[in-house]
Nucleic acid binder design. Sequence first.
DNA 1: CCTCAAGTATGAGATTTCTCATACTTACCT
DNA 2: AGGTAAGTATGAGAAATCTCATACTTGAGG
Lengths: 230, 230
Amino acid sequence: MRIIKNEDLKQRFIAEWSYDRQFSFDIAQVAQLYLFPAKSIIVQAPDRPRDLLYLVKGKTKLYDTLANGKVALIDFFTPPCFIGEMELLDPKSPSFTVQAIEDCWCLALPMAEYQQKLLQDTTFLRSVCQYLGRKNSRNIRTSSQNQAFTLSQRLAGFILLTANDEMYEEKHTQVAQYLGVSYRHLLYVLADFVKLGYLEKVGHHYRVVQPDSLARLAREVDWKTGSTEK
Amino acid sequence: MRIIKNEDLKQRFIAEWSYDRQFSFDIAQVAQLYLFPAKSIIVQAPDRPRDLLYLVKGKTKLYDTLANGKVALIDFFTPPCFIGEMELLDPKSPSFTVQAIEDCWCLALPMAEYQQKLLQDTTFLRSVCQYLGRKNSRNIRTSSQNQAFTLSQRLAGFILLTANDEMYEEKHTQVAQYLGVSYRHLLYVLADFVKLGYLEKVGHHYRVVQPDSLARLAREVDWKTGSTEK
DNA sequence: CCTCAAGTATGAGATTTCTCATACTTACCT
DNA sequence: AGGTAAGTATGAGAAATCTCATACTTGAGG
């Protein structure tokens, strides 16, 4: 992770998502701009995050570590999106691992220093409530809809979401579990995409060669295109 | 809806879910206890709810009215659970229809009178944040897991959740959409349950005759057994 | 009274997806 | 070096689920 000392860029991100309006005090001066390179770990469970982050650019994925030690993919985040807000608000909340899919820019506020202040800040609390509420509505709606689509359609969207730099490199076992299908079937459909020319196999990974075809397939799926609607 | 003037019962419900600890002021005296009879409408979209409710006993379901006028089943709530919290917090949030599945008891706080106070109450706001965050974790986890189960298993759980007084009376069209399966297939599985003796057809409805068998089938499904874990 | 929309109901054949069996490879542990 | 766990890979048959076609019933509106 790198701290980006570019005041101008920082202010642009703040303005783009009205970050400053989510606090009752002047945040623009104290927040720092971080850059997490693609594939780097943003939060490593079970460590608690050091900062309250606000994702302003990039895509991330969230993993849970199961009781048996296995790692399960559970969700994706795109801007605008808080990271670490549950840990800030709920001391008992478990924490999850968050990884950058592509380069991710975040506005960061050190928790140790600001936790007490934030827990007393009604502007901030109301804004988090709205954020969580909208995320909820989205989840509820999409989860019951997504089941209705065939794996090809959901996988197409999934590949576009998780590919970085034209390369799709997710672990099949995790993806099968996330998409709720068998490992076997996932491989069939992947092989199909290769046969159709949408993907090209490179070692154990795949190169996206026809993003448009995938997009056409995924078109109807109300995919996680934003943590809340923009 | 009836207002229940039973101070003793009210206090018991408050204690059972630590309702009073979610506010910084003394709520026990001003909250009223409501009883919504089975099948009655608790909140009717697009009207905004008059009170902030807290479900302490009973089960409810939530509907969305689609653009085309159709009604879609989208979620279920069980105690403890706020109803109307999004409308209180987010003036722009759409509102949904909430219906009692069985008799439902709610603690009620008139919004007009308390909205301003609640929006300034950090204890309340933090508690709603935690509540929403946990609901989120639950949704995320269950939604990606549920797909992995067969319709028989999910339907078994669904029937147990939505039946009232041993009668299952949901509309097949809505259920098929909610469970993400075709109408046709839903009817096949329902017919199967009848053949197996789990259900008994009564007109267009079904009587649950072997709840245990259904429970066994549903056992593994991490069903919505609570809005947050108790 | 007629018509239309929505919900219910059932059959038949086509697709999607699953389970199980079996191998090969890689990383890590001892 | 040997062993084990995890991930990858593929085949074959079975089960789950879908699409389409077709009817019947009921309630609301003209």
